[in-house]
Write a protein that binds this DNA or RNA. Structure first.
Lengths: 236, 236
DNA sequence: AACCGGAATTTTGAATGCAAAATCGCCCTG
DNA sequence: CAGGGCGATTTTGCATTCAAAATTCCGGTT
């Protein structure tokens, strides 16, 4: 059942990426990234080219090109003449990632409050209500997906493509940790309460309040993530 | 003479990148990136694989792998079956880049003030004095290089690798605009005065002051950059 | 059982080849 | 002169091949 939930979560995100792409290269990058995150591979594990070629039904050339991009994204590490490994997940990375994301959240808060269109507010409200529905049904996978969409929508409302791109990169990195901790990272009731506050500030178009709410939300998520990862080291 | 200055500026940055690398792939990425920034190519210009292979003396395979990475960095745009083009430089990108960089500068200020070691302070002071020397001699190329090193050193003092990486990506993007505007973007006296204030706040280890100084410095650089780019549209 | 050395096998980095798509150049027509 | 069509040429995406590096396997020695 858990494995099933994972598949659902990513499958809903993955098609979006594919429809935006169009080339084998970009499809391959996304598919391999998906496999790296959800495929049950262990950090540090070797990623043989031949296996991937067989799995995805492509020759080595486009496969290697995709691996190069994934390496520059930090998902894998290339070792000369020894192949690629899945980049190790270092719990020490959590704090720096969330610290940086906190700075981006603040900027999102300061700018989205003024720049969001009414249409965007409506969309975010719709997502917010969907989050509420998912909370009632207790569907973690759906909540996670909608949460991703909600925050992505907020970043888009800033109208700063650079910010959106940087934010998404961080979301992808956090995604891998989420899969690592699985259900032990579940704070959806608390999260939704924070989303309520975020929506209030957004509707009121109060930049400082919105920024503070987003930063606090980010910090709490960081704390929960660190606790969940710390629990992985404890005996079952 | 201008062409000579450009070469000097990048050559001093480029060797550092190469020594950190070690593989043909990484060397090629750096070399092509350098060519894209300083090679006098026009935005939107086609980048034929065959030319690059000849120029760098490699076969198409590693060349294509490098191009894929540069595309994911946003330096080039890949068009299916039509080859790569140098990504257009849109003046509208300046504000978003600097807006995001402003958020990072703030975080750098808030964290470096507490986290910088004495050795790092010493190094930054040395760079600061070198900047002063360069100001006296009016060497723009050297000032630009040392300025890059100074800000990089500040980012390193935060001890946040994610932040350092994101900051460097933005620096690289800004670099391209710098080459576009060339000498019309010259504010080294004003810049140095701002660096003085930055050093004072850093030595005093006052996070809020340092953050404010870095943000102001960033904003003024943004303003100057936008003015310089706007002048490019004016009749010579 | 553990360790070492050498041979065999596998994997990787890069070159080359092939077919499809795009571009270029030339000629004809209005 | 401008535009369109067609053939020739070039460029691109990807498969395949080759040589070097790394890993694995096997046998012998302690």
């Amino acid at each position: 059942m858990e494995a099933q939930d994972k598949t659902e979560t990513r499958s809903e995100t993955q098609p979006e990426t594919q429809t935006e792409a169009g080339t084998l290269h970009q499809t391959l990058v996304a598919n391999i990234r998906n496999l790296l995150i959800e495929g049950g591979l262990a950090a540090g594990q070797r990623i043989p080219e031949a296996e991937l070629c067989q799995r995805f039904g492509v020759s080595r050339t486009p496969l290697r090109e995709a691996l190069k991009v994934l390496a520059s994204e930090g998902f894998i590490q290339l070792r000369p003449n020894r192949g690629a490994i899945l980049a190790p997940l270092d719990p020490g990375q959590i704090a720096p990632i969330f610290e940086l994301k906190g700075a981006l959240e603040r900027l999102i808060g300061l700018t989205a409050a003024d720049r969001a269109t009414e249409a965007e507010l409506t969309r975010l409200s719709t997502l917010h209500h969907a989050l509420n529905d998912t909370l009632a049904s207790g569907n973690l996978a759906s909540y996670t997906q909608l949460n991703y969409d909600f925050h992505k929508g907020l970043a888009e409302a800033t109208r700063n493509a650079e910010l959106m791109q940087s934010y998404d990169i961080l979301q992808q990195k956090i995604w891998r940790f989420r899969f690592l901790v699985n259900d032990s990272f579940s704070r959806i009731e608390e999260s939704f309460a924070e989303h309520e506050q975020i929506m209030i500030a957004l509707r009121a178009r109060t930049p400082l309040d919105l920024a503070a709410r987003l930063e606090a939300h980010n910090q709490k998520t960081c704390d929960a993530m660190q606790r969940a990862v710390a629990q992985l080291d404890q005996p079952g």
